[in-house]
Every structure is written in structure tokens, then in C-alpha cells.
């Protein structure tokens, strides 16, 4: 079981709710993914479309909501969004995202650290989205982050884990759960993260934009489970030298 702050989760796959073609597809894909924790964003109500309400499609009792601060460009904006999230969602959990550069959507480490410290003091359970920086991950743990969410590759790029070396160090050093977030484009990427010892992964785009999001959600769920089981089972060491799997003795009759 995965434990973050005071809450336990059976599923190590966290779902995103963005980019789905319809609410119906989103609902079915989330159900197929087995995710218990799902992310949502905060935006102005579209007053021309008052009935367009994601909460009408998602059961608060089925899912644990993790509001994000997407769109925030600095700590101040993130904190404003955090307070809105707490008010609308009746939750003090937060995926802290501070992304000043729209081209890369890479997170700002300085503002993220600053906001984490202030939000933790204000009673939030903060899961910061970060570049895969082992030192930053430690600093965030020091100020009370409940988990760290290093990126595999930039948001929405489907490029997989380009940050392998750094994510491995983050996992080695972690005293809080590590959730690999962003860029996981295929079930094999999610499995790789879990085999490395990540505690969970967050997947949105790869499922939402798949040809068949419901089946893709299932594929990710299977991959996460396989990867976790493999990690717990203890993977064999890698070697540069070949080692025969079949016995090397008993070949005398050939020569």
C-alpha cells in the first residue's frame, strides 16, 4: 500500500482529468485505470456554459482529488490558486505546479520551494511538481513536502523518462514517496518508473489522447502493477559480460 501523508492508496497510478474528448470517455478511462487519486485544475467558470461541471461527472467518494496549481507562474499565484482549491474542493491536498515558461512548462525550483514552505505552514498537504533535481527534492522534504513529483520529460510530450539518472538518485534518497509525473507516454515508461522504485506515477495525456483511452488506461494500470511487482521482487544485476542461462557442463559429448 502506498501511504502519502495520512492516506493510503491501493493503486499506484494517479490519473489526470485533462484533454479527454468527452466527460463520458474520461469517466470510463478513470474507472479502467483503477486510479484512486486524480488531479483537477482550477479555472474561471465559463458563464456561457454553466452546466459544464466536471464535479457532476466525478464521484467525490470514489476519488481522492488532488487539485493542481497549473497556470501559476510564481509562488504568489500558486498560493492564490491553492486557497481557491481548498475552498472549492474541501481538501487541503495540492499538486503544486509553478511553470513560468509556457514553451517548456518546466517548473521554477525557487518559487516551488518558497511556495511549498508557506503552504505547508498553512496546513496544506503539498506534492510539488519538480524537475528531476535530487538536491531540490531533499530541500522540499526538509520543508515538509508530503511527496515529490519529478518529471520524466516535459508535460504532454510523451517522451518517457529522459531524467533516469536523476530520478534514480531522488528515489534512493527519498524519505517521502516519489511520484514520477509528466512525459510518461507509453505503459513501458510507467513500468520503467515503477521498476526503478518510484512509489507511483501520474499519467494524463498518454491516456487522454490515445486512440482508445479506456483500453490505454487499462494498459497503464497493468504496466504499473507489473513494474511495482518487479521492483518488489528484486531485479537481477545488469552486466556487460554475457553469462549463459543454460548449464556450461555436460557438453563433452559434442567434442
Amino acid at each position: 500500500m502506498l501511504k502519502i501523508a495520512d492516506k493510503t492508496f491501493r493503486s499506484r497510478l494517479f490519473g489526470g482529468t485533462g484533454k479527454f474528448a468527452s466527460s463520458q470517455v474520461m469517466k470510463e478511462a478513470l474507472a479502467a485505470s483503477g486510479a484512486e487519486m486524480i488531479t483537477v485544475a482550477l479555472r474561471r467558470v465559463d458563464l456561457n456554459n454553466p452546466e459544464d461541471d466536471i464535479m457532476a461527472n466525478l464521484d467525490r467518494h470514489t476519488y481522492w482529488f488532488l487539485p493542481n496549481t497549473s497556470g501559476a507562474r510564481d509562488a504568489e499565484e500558486a498560493i492564490r490558486l491553492a486557497n481557491l482549491a481548498r475552498a472549492v474542493g474541501r481538501t487541503n491536498w495540492l499538486k503544486l505546479e509553478v511553470t513560468p515558461d509556457p514553451r517548456t512548462l518546466l517548473p521554477d525550483p525557487v518559487e516551488t520551494l518558497k511556495a511549498t514552505e508557506l503552504l505547508v505552514k498553512d496546513g496544506f498537504v503539498v506534492l510539488p511538481y519538480i524537475n528531476a533535481d535530487p538536491i531540490l527534492a531533499l530541500r522540499l522534504q526538509d520543508v515538509g513536502a508530503a511527496a515529490v513529483m519529478p518529471l520524466g520529460s516535459p508535460i504532454g510530450t510523451n517522451q518517457g523518462i529522459l531524467t533516469r539518472f536523476q530520478v534514480e538518485i531522488i528515489i534512493e534518497q527519498a524519505r517521502v514517496p516519489v511520484v514520477v509525473d509528466a512525459g510518461l507516454g507509453a505503459p513501458s515508461h510507467a513500468a520503467a518508473a515503477m521498476e526503478m522504485g518510484a512509489d507511483a506515477v501520474l499519467v494524463n495525456t498518454a491516456i487522454a489522447v490515445a486512440g482508445d483511452p479506456v483500453r490505454m488506461a487499462r494498459a497503464f494500470a497493468q504496466a504499473v502493477e507489473a513494474g511495482r511487482t518487479a521492483y518488489e521482487s528484486g531485479l537481477g544485476m545488469q552486466d556487460r559480460q554475457a553469462a549463459a542461462s543454460s548449464p556450461e557442463v555436460g557438453l563433452d559429448f559434442l567434442r
Binding site: V40, A41, L42, L47, M55, A87, G89
Partner: peptide
């Protein structure tokens, strides 16, 4: 931020600037 319990008791005043926000799909 206005607390939800205060919605009924909050009387609007001329020129006030309101932002109505809710959850939408996101990652």
C-alpha cells in the same frame, strides 16, 4: 475567498469584483 457558508449572507455591492472559479479537467 468567500467561505461557502457565507454565500447566503453575502450581499453584493456596486462595483464589486467577483471571480467564480471551479474545478476543470487537468493533469
Amino acid at each position: 475567498v468567500v467561505k461557502r457558508n457565507d454565500y447566503e449572507g453575502t450581499v453584493l455591492a456596486e462595483g464589486q469584483n467577483l471571480e467564480l472559479i471551479r474545478f476543470v479537467g487537468g493533469g
